[in-house]
């Protein structure tokens, strides 16, 4: 199963690259640097998926104490943090030529940065507790707290940036939603979701093998 996922992921990544560089047009206002969006957006969206899965798996673990759920949460956390970190980095690389700056504290960037640090903490907690069962329990609790915190983070940051603020906030030269951009984006999104699934599946398999080796 893992192998099939792997090949599927590889194929769709290849397709994604073709779409991003061969099919997608050169963007009118930003130029070719806009092509970074075909990795940046899928990375961020796939990381959101990872964190949703993490939250659900944590809940399942707390209720049923099923170790498989814990392994899924663990793997999803790893891949999620990696993806969101890369998402932030690629966004920053895109931002420098487009906005003139590597970083800005607008609502979206701030929220994603907080997300990154929160789930990095999740991984740190994992790494610090040696006892597998205790780590599973604690991380499940943290996973749920983090998930419940996300709407609070979203609103507080959004209000912080938009209320009593002059309306001339920098907005990314965003999509005008033309289909020539939409299809390459969709293909790449599917590619990164498949990549996520492949990495999680492989990591879970490794975690199970590690657990059995110790038993």
């Amino acid at each position: 199963m893992v192998k099939t996922l792997g090949w599927l992921a590889a194929a769709s990544v290849a397709a994604g690259l073709v779409m991003a560089f061969g099919v997608a047009p050169r963007e009118v206002t930003q130029g070719n640097v806009q092509r970074i969006m075909y990795v940046h957006v899928p990375l961020i969206l796939a990381s959101y998926l990872a964190f949703v899965v993490l939250a659900l798996a944590s809940l399942v673990y707390l209720v049923r104490r099923d170790e498989a759920a814990d392994r899924v949460a663990h793997a999803s956390g790893e891949v999620g943090v990696m993806f969101v970190g890369l998402g932030i980095a690629t966004g920053s690389i895109w931002g420098k030529p487009t906005w003139g700056t590597w970083w800005t504290w607008d609502a979206r960037l701030t929220s994603v940065a907080i997300l990154f640090v929160m789930y990095l903490g999740y991984l740190l907690l994992r790494g610090t507790i040696e006892d597998r069962e205790r780590a599973a329990r604690y991380c499940a609790v943290l996973g749920i707290v983090a998930a419940l915190d996300i709407p609070l983070v979203h609103f507080s940051v959004y209000w912080w940036r938009t209320l009593h603020q002059p309306p001339s906030l920098m907005k990314p030269g965003g999509f005008t939603g033309s289909s020539s951009i939409l299809w390459p984006l969709l293909v790449n999104l599917i590619a990164f979701v498949l990549l996520y699934a492949y990495f999680v599946a492989r990591r879970v398999r490794l975690l199970r093998a590690e657990a059995e080796a110790v038993a």
Partner: peptide, 17 residues
């Protein structure tokens, strides 16, 4: 066109993965 930035972004992603 800033191809350098594009290469950096794709390259970083590829290397990390």
């Amino acid at each position: 066109d800033n191809w350098g930035f594009v290469a950096a972004a794709y390259g970083l992603t590829a290397v990390a993965l």
